[in-house]
Design a binder for these strands. Structure first.
Lengths: 342, 342
DNA sequence: ATTAGCACTCAACAACAAAGAGTGCTAATA
DNA sequence: TATTAGCACTCTTTGTTGTTGAGTGCTAAT
């Protein structure tokens, strides 16, 4: 038994219908709504075959069928027609994304919000981990004679600004020089490497400021350990209540609880993302908590290194077509911006 | 008719019981659980009086009574015994808050998390609005010859770091000098005043850098307008699902939707806060969305100006006693830290 | 190969009864 | 005079029992 033309048509109809209605689809519904030119009985036979092949499931004997993850996968890969994005939507995206030069971080946050607004799903934006990225610039800015702000700018555009307290104080002019020296020395290294580099590579130029550096660097490393290593922005969390599959309070709770666990989401997104836009369906997701969700993730790169992820999460019964078209448009514009401006 | 000793005792018993069980309290329950030495019939008579006085309500004829907002107010002001905080909890707070020097912002965020963990309610932390606070230090850090980061440190300890793109580029050395001059000139002003100051007060020292300043400042003002004027940290949002009053999906949804509206929460917190710790009960809250919630808010000040708010939100049937004791301890330690370190 | 016909399954819904918690009132009591 | 036992009444909650209807799988006819 194999997937002939008619089976595909029927499967497509069932998936479309289920995405739209969230109700198990029966044979009669199919013949009424989709003009396939065969009787319900024929559809029933085909449905039984599709179930045997693993594309459909029956919640209980006397209910219609619902698509399996395998069916959604087929749908996303080959069956689905991608909507052309509406003019209004494209303009809205343009208006709201293009004005965001500034920090990449903010660009992601905005995009996430726009995506949530346009799709009515929950969206996430993730920045890369700080540890892996290269230092572009390090600047120490004194606030008073005991505290300073370390401005850390990475090649991925992330800026951090930990406040350091230096016991024993310092001279502001010296800090300026130290800042310059360290900057020359460390720019281009990954943050991970810096600690290593510092202990090995004590040349005379640095030696001159040994005293102050020995007090500043440990503070800096300690703070870098503590610091939030990545940022995660969440939008439209309550959109989940729009979907009948989450009208059960326990389902809703467990979904929202998942959204509170940043580490879990990070690994979920990072492991699902790849080149361009990737769809991860139900059981394909790495974590148990997302087994009945689908994730659509766009990865953004600059010079080959990922600089951010934009992700949308919802029930496996997701309007893939619309999501992919909106997200595609947003990705396109972000990538354009990255190319032109960074 | 007035509130005699016995009425107060009964009211207290009802409130305690309702806080604990979330079920309307009947006359028989009171006599069984609280040893008041009178029969259910007597309690019933007193309850009828308390209802007439506005302290109790009946969901329906054949149910027990539940406390009104007025009753909770009385409870919080005079009836409640404040628990002494447990040793373990105090130590936990100490361990988790004291290690947070660094930015005030982070201190608030941490405190909010600790408070949520110890109470199992939803907590919020709010920073003051940027516009009203005074500039302590402004530093321009060049990234390359077209972009720079403006480090803005205010007297309330908030640090912002907008990225500015300066059309036409600049010389890095000049930026350093500009930065110094601006810093001398503007430190101590509120951000609101700066724009005004800049246009009026063009003395020779600044005039020298007129060209570059004229290109930098408009960018800075534009960014300050756009920038998130305050930060709001949220913890334990899903704790709401622990309470039976939110097992209705619509209630839960509307609560969580409220939590997504940062502006609304800001005004809610800012308007409920005052000196020290303030409890705002149900209808006392300014916004419609929080009419069946209570808010406990602690305001933190430095030299008379508020530098942050820590807030806890939950059903009016809240364990005020525990919340106030935990929050009191956290406030105490934050205030200590503020006094010692800032 | 397709389909009409039919017996069968099962969730969803409505109607109804019974249980139980709680009240207010009245009359008896300390 | 304040308290309380007793009782009729109210109203929600819970369980039971049909009934309906959507949908299926199988068989036999086309």
């Amino acid at each position: 038994m194999e997937l002939n033309e008619r089976k595909l048509k029927i499967l497509q109809a069932i998936i479309k219908d289920y995405i739209y209605t969230a109700e198990p689809v029966g044979s009669r519904t199919i013949t009424k709504r989709y003009n396939l030119g065969v009787s319900p009985a024929t559809i029933r036979n085909e449905m039984a075959d599709l179930e045997e092949l693993g594309y459909l499931m029956q919640p209980h004997t006397s209910a219609g069928r619902i698509p399996s993850d395998k069916a959604y996968r087929l749908y996303v890969d080959t069956l689905m027609e991608i909507k052309k994005i509406a003019e209004v939507q494209r303009d809205y995206i343009k208006a709201n994304i293009l004005r965001q030069f500034g920090e990449l971080e903010q660009l992601l946050q905005y995009s996430s919000r726009v995506l949530a607004e346009l799709t009515n799903y929950t969206t996430l934006a993730l920045t890369p981990q700080l540890k892996g990225s290269r230092l572009k610039q390090l600047q120490l800015v004194p606030i008073n004679n005991e505290n300073l702000v370390a401005i850390i700018i990475t090649d991925t555009g992330v800026v951090k600004k930990p406040l350091l307290r230096i016991k024993g104080g310092f001279d502001e002019e010296v800090i300026y020089n130290v800042s310059k020296v360290l900057n020359d020395k460390l720019a281009g290294s990954t943050l991970k490497d810096i600690e290593h580099k510092m202990s090995n590579d004590m040349d005379k130029e640095i030696f001159q400021f040994n005293n102050i550096i020995n007090r500043v660097m440990p503070e800096l490393f300690k703070t870098l350990e503590d610091i939030n290593d990545f940022d995660l922005f969440l939008n439209g969390a309550t959109n989940i209540f729009n979907f009948p599959e989450y009208s059960d309070i326990f389902k809703a709770k467990s979904f929202l609880t998942m959204l509170e666990e940043k580490q879990l989401l990070r690994s979920l997104i990072a492991s699902s993302g790849g080149e361009g836009m990737v769809v991860s369906i139900g059981s394909e997701n790495t974590c148990q908590e997302a087994k009945d969700c689908s994730l659509v993730t766009a990865t953004f790169k600059l010079n080959g290194a990922p600089v951010g992820w934009l992700s949308l999460i919802g029930p496996t019964r997701m309007d893939y077509s619309n999501v992919i078209s909106v997200m595609g448009q947003i990705s396109k514009q972000i990538n354009q911006l990255l190319k032109d401006e960074y």
